[in-house]
Each structure stands twice: as structure tokens, then as C-alpha cells.
Design a protein around this nucleic acid. Structure first.
Lengths: 243, 243
DNA sequence: CTCAGTTATTCTCAATCCGAGTTGTTCTAC
DNA sequence: GTAGAACAACTCGGATTGAGAATAACTGAG
């Protein structure tokens, strides 16, 4: 049997049916806190429960499926950075059938309120600390997304995806503070950001008004062309995470 | 319709058939060079072509499916470190049907020659530089696996998965040299490995005979309890990789 | 207007880390 | 024995880092 004959005789329905979904962990910063985009499911299974936006993969590739779900269920899309996170396929994670979910991670600057659509009854930004318990195994997926985001802040310019086109060093620092959950030394952060090649570049301009409670006008920067930060901006290692 | 009624009426065959496979990038070091485990496919599609070992996911979870494929097609298993790499699901990546592949990454110390089985006509260790062109989109998966491995050497004790239970600092250094493709300064590497908490711990013993061409007996170490290396063991940044 | 409070930015200083090279020692091959 | 090789330890100068402080620009209250 040659390749052509093999393909003509191949029966794609020979195996147990199995579905593939994409689920998206979308992170942004609002009110100085890290938020995740959730939907409240309108239909079974887990009707009424919060969940990550997601849905079944149809004809397009995985990246596009993730993009489509984000748009359909929440009305968001512009200027989000999207990357694959991991896949989850334990039998029994979906009561309907065997479902393998390819999770995606998305980041965006503070955006408009999401608009529900598709399967979602409502869509909302939830504090990452108070998100769960979520439907399916989405708590686990969210945890993986958070860890990935925290880690990628260290060695990539990902933080610039959380702010607008032009931003101050302080805004950038508040991204790190929100995602890592700890304050950073303002002076050292400033020195470090400017010393890493390609992280940010100056626009020459400054903010119009200074921030809420006084202080000089801050200089504005935009994202540079670096894809990785070298040397990295390491978060202080917590002893308990090392072992 | 409540949850129970919904599930009773749910038709798992309503969607286009779609398969999930696992493919495994297995890396080891032989003859001082980084090798990847490949099979020569015995059946269409891509009969006769080299490919990553893999196969369809059946009842078990993804991790176990990867473990099973590695065992079935190559006879390998003991003491391999296994972790999920990424998923690949472009339409058309498999001529038979829509297939989403969950790729895994495995590391092991230099092992016996693999034994073919299952779909594989033969199994072999190939130099990572001379592996392709592979079947399906496996070149791309292999590239992703290599980049992940190179990166994880920096901030995890992954290198210890490539050597035996007891090893010398030199053996560990040759792992880094093989995976990164560049030699490291022996003295600095030695200092660094011993200074990172939890990377290695001394056994007190030394090698019986010294290495091939002379030199004193080297002290033996085993893997420590650290899960991440802090400070990390950074490879020298190449300018072209930064932008 | 003045002052206290806040913020952006720069500077200082000591501790640490890192790359590169050197030294002393132990072993094998010849 | 001697040369060559490899392990282990040390040195030294430069770069990076954490912590704190100094300087300057701005806001809002009185």
C-alpha cells in the first residue's frame, strides 16, 4: 500500500471521538491590580460558574482559534499579545467527553469592559487572587498562566504589553509590582530598565500633568526592539520557591 | 435543560473528527554530543522518513500517553525526565486528518540503544544538528525542544538529568557544553556549580580511575534538592538572539 | 505665596558576581 | 622520569546589585 492508497482508505472516525478546545488566560492591570478575564457560563456544563473564555477548535489553527474565542466571547482583541501556554488533557476534566484543552495566555493594557457573547452570559475582570473556584480545571490553568507571566517579566519585555504605546518608568514599575505582588526599589528599577539594551527607548516627551499627588513630570518611553532582556530583571528569589 | 439532561443528550460525534497525538523529543548525550531519539516510520504517511516517536492519545492522560509511546516505540523509559513542551495544530500538518499534537520533552542519561517497536521500523539516536528533514512538522517541534532545553539548563538543575546518579563536575560541564554548543571556562563553572545552593551535593567519594588522559581523581557529586538555580547559570548572550 | 508631601531621577557605596587567567597537584602515557 | 592533561583552588579587575540618600519638580492645603 503506497501513501496515496493509504490516505484514500484512511477512516478518520475509527477512534473514540475527542475534542480540542482553546481556553485563554487574559491578564491586564486595572486599579493597580492584576486582573484575569472570566466569563460566567450561560449553558451546561457548569452553568452559572465562572470560567476562562474558550471554545472548541474548528477549522483554523490553534492561535487563530484562541484569537477568535477572545473576540467572540468578550469583544476584546486589539493590541493583545497572545502566546500558547500549555495543554491539559486529563480524562474526566470535561463531563461531556474527552476534551484536550490548549491553553493560551494573553496580555493587554487596561482595556474597556468586556462584552459578553457566544456561550458567555457575562464577562468580567476579576482579581487574580479572588478568581476561583472556576469551572473544569481552569483554576489549574490560571495558576499556570500566572506563573508563566511572572516568569516572563524577568527575561522578556513582556511588561510593555501591559501599558500603552507611551509610558513612564513608574508605570512600568507598577506593572512589575502588580504581577509580582511586591514593590520594587524605584531608583534601582529605573537604573536597570534604562541600562538593559533595547528594553525601552525615549520619546523625548514628558507627561502633561504630573501624577496624582505631585512630583515632577515623568519622561515618556516606548517599547524598544529587544525580544529578550539581557541581563534579566530578576525578582528576588524566595527561599521557599527554590527547593 | 439541567446539567444531567444536557449531558444525556450530548452527542460527542457532532463535530468534525479530530485526533490528538503525543510526540516526544527525547534528548541525551552520547559521545559528547547532543542526540535526539528518532524513529524511521514503517507505515504511511511518510513511510521511510525519520520522525519523532509518538502516537495517538487513547484513554490515559497526556503525560502517560507520552510515557507509553516512548516505551512502545523505543523500549526506553527508566529514569527519563518528562515534561510537556507545546502543542502544534496547524490544519494540514498531518495528511490523514486534522491532528493536534501535544509535544513532550524528555531527558535522560546516556542509555542503551533503543529498540524499535510499534509503528517504528527502526529507532536511533541522531545528532541534533543532522536530524532532519523529519516527517510532518517535526523539525519545528525539535527546534522548540532544543530551545527549551538550552534555556532550562540556565535556571534549573536539568543538566543533572543527563548524567548518572553520581557524576563529576566535569561531566556536568560537558553536558552544558554539548547542549549549548560552546565550551565553558572550567574554573568558573566549578566555582559556580558549587556556589549555587542545592544544585549538587558531595558524596565524599572520588572516581576510581582518573579520566582518559591523566589528571587527579575527580570528586563525585549527586543532584541536590534545588528545583531552580539561583543565581542562574547564564549562557553568554549572543547579540543576534536579543533583538 | 509658602510649605509639606509626593514623585522622578540621579548618585553613592558596599557587597556580590563574573570572566579571564594563574597556580598547585595528581594522574596517565610514553 | 617527564610531558601532557585534568581537577581544584585562587587572584584580580570590572560589572551588577541592593539599599539608602540627595536633588529637583510638582501638587494641594492653608
Amino acid at each position: 500500500m503506497n501513501e496515496r492508497e493509504f490516505l484514500e482508505n484512511y477512516d478518520p472516525r475509527a477512534f473514540e471521538p475527542l475534542a480540542v478546545t482553546v481556553d485563554v488566560v487574559t491578564l491586564t492591570i486595572r486599579e493597580g491590580r492584576l486582573k484575569v478575564l472570566l466569563v460566567e457560563r450561560g449553558e451546561p456544563p457548569f452553568a452559572g460558574r465562572r470560567a476562562l473564555p474558550g471554545g472548541f477548535v474548528r477549522d483554523d489553527d490553534l492561535d487563530n482559534a484562541a484569537r477568535r474565542e477572545l473576540a467572540e466571547e468578550t469583544g476584546l482583541l486589539p493590541r493583545v499579545h497572545l502566546e500558547q501556554l500549555a495543554s491539559f488533557g486529563d480524562p474526566g476534566r470535561d463531563p461531556r467527553m474527552r476534551v484536550v484543552s490548549v491553553a493560551y495566555l494573553a496580555f493587554g493594557p487596561s482595556l474597556a469592559d468586556p462584552v459578553a457573547g457566544g456561550d458567555a452570559a457575562t464577562a468580567l475582570w476579576a482579581d487574580v487572587d479572588a478568581a476561583g473556584p472556576l469551572a473544569f480545571d481552569h483554576d489549574r490553568i490560571l495558576a499556570a498562566g500566572l506563573e508563566r507571566a511572572r516568569s516572563k517579566l524577568e527575561y522578556t519585555p513582556l511588561a510593555t504589553a501591559f501599558v500603552g504605546d507611551e509610558f513612564t518608568i513608574s508605570e512600568l514599575r507598577s506593572v512589575y509590582a502588580a504581577v509580582w505582588g511586591e514593590d520594587l526599589h524605584a531608583g534601582n528599577f529605573h537604573r536597570k530598565v534604562l541600562s538593559v539594551p533595547g528594553f525601552v527607548e525615549s520619546t523625548g516627551a514628558t507627561t502633561e500633568r504630573s501624577s496624582q499627588r505631585g512630583g515632577p513630570r515623568a519622561r515618556l518611553y516606548r517599547a524598544g526592539d529587544a525580544r529578550i532582556l539581557h541581563p534579566a530583571l530578576l525578582r528576588p528569589a524566595r527561599e521557599e520557591e527554590v527547593r
